[in-house]
Structure formats: structure tokens, C-alpha cells
Amino acid sequence: MDNVIRRRTPGARMLRAGLYALLMVMALVYLLPLVVMLLTSLKPLEEIRAGGLLSLPDSLTFAAWLKAWGSACTGTRCEGLSGYFMNSVSIVVPAVAISTLMGALNGYALTKWRFRGANLCFALLLFGCFIPFQVVLMPMAQTLGWLGLASSTSGLVLVHVVYGIAFTTLFFRNYYVSIPDEMIAAAKLDGAGFFRIFWRILLPISGPIITVSVIWQFTQIWNDFLFGVAFAGFGSQPVTVALNNLVNTSTGVKEYNVDMAGALIAALPTLVVYVVAGKYFVRGLTAGSVKG
């Protein structure tokens, strides 16, 4: 029962039914690619060749998923996506953690320990949100080379942290700006210093915005392809790059079911994160002040 008063004439009802039908068709159109991917990944290759893109699989098989995970060829190596998946994890976890923590510290310093030029500092940081990835490829490669981090997991973590800080700072600054300064003043009078106030007072009430920051950063870094392909070495390529290699491997037969399974494997973590924490994402984005 929706909470609206509306006309109840037959014409109005028809119109509503039409509206819902239209919306459902649109939703279907939107979902169709995912459905096709899922169906294709569960069919054996012969069935796919026989056509019937939308037909349900006659013989359900997880062989394509197993192959994509364990033995599909990405370029010259045929070890599946599992190793690259783990590469992605070892890039994403530290990069998300570090960029979120640094964003929180930045937001805290920019709002609660205001210094001369804090606004300018924040404005400059925000530029980072609008710089396209391509622009920094060359200078970043140079920098990673100087730092001795070229082609390494740590190098990729660094790149993602640098790129992510702009966004995480924005999130945390806007969240902390609504937390009353009096609370910080009280903690100062109680004898707590900069980091103590951060750990003991602010972080424990930052749950919603930490969720936002983690989801955002996780999605961005997990789905990144450009930095991965540009800066990763053979041993540190993320799953997105491996997926590209898997799909583009030109030797042998084109195994659509394996391609689809690989794509789903690469996309699954971000989907899971959103499904699990999605409602906190929306809640965190709209969170006002903390009612103390």
C-alpha cells in the first residue's frame, strides 16, 4: 500500500497498470545482459553454438566457472583468474584501508583543527577528484620508477591511495563538519590530544562514512583497469587486466562460457560489497549531524 491519495476511476487504474508494465520492461532490458552472462556461463560450449541466447541451460555445468578460475589461458599462462584475483585482493585491501584512514585524518584536521589556508587546501585536494587517470600515467610511471616501486603491488597501492585521498577526504570532511566543535573542545579540556581525540571520540562515531568510503574505494580500485595495465608487473596484475587477457587470447576456440564466467568472477566482489553494505552507503551519504 503506497501512501498517496489518487483517483480510483477505471481509466486511472489502466494508466497505472500501463506505467508499471513499462517500468518492468525497462527493468528487464536493464537486467538482460546480466542474465545472458549468467546463463551463458552455465552452459556447455555446444549449447551456446546451437544458439538460443536466452534459453535456460539444458545441462547445467560449472565447468566454465572452474576453468575461468583455475585453468583458463590469460596470454601465455594458463592458470585461470585465481592468482590475479588474489593480486587484486592484495592491492585493494591495503589501498582501501590506507586511503580511508588518511581521508579520515584529513577530514578531521580540515574541520576540527582549522588552520590558515584550510579551505584553500581542501579546494586543491578536490582537484584530485577531477583529474582524469590518463593525464597522470606518464608522471606516475616516472615517480614509481624513482621510488623503486615500478611493476609492484606496493606501487599500485600507492597510486590508488594517492588517487583515492581526494574522494575520501571529501567524504570525511563533509561528515565531520556536521559534528559539533564543542565535542572536540570538551575532549581538549579533558586532556586529549590530536590523535587521541581522533581515535577515541571521532572514529567510533564515523561508522556510516567509513562504510561509504570503503564501498566507494573498493569499487573504484577493484574495477580499475588502466592503472593495473599500466603499472602492474607480471606478478602483480589485477583481475581486470587478466580478464582482458583471457577474453583476448586468440589461440584456440572462443569459449564464451569461460569468458562470461571470468567476467562474473571479476565483478562479483563489488556486487557483494554493495549488496551487503549498500543500505549503509545510502545512509552514510545522507547522514546529517550525529545527535549526541
Binding site: P180, E182, M183, A185, A186, R200, I201, P204, G292
Partner: peptide, 11 residues
């Protein structure tokens, strides 16, 4: 100090 908004630590 006692503040107008009480400024208690919510957590």
C-alpha cells in the same frame, strides 16, 4: 567546562 550542547561523547 560545561557546554550548551552538553558535548557528550556519543560512542
Amino acid at each position: 567546562m560545561v557546554f550548551q550542547s552538553y558535548a557528550l561523547y556519543p560512542s
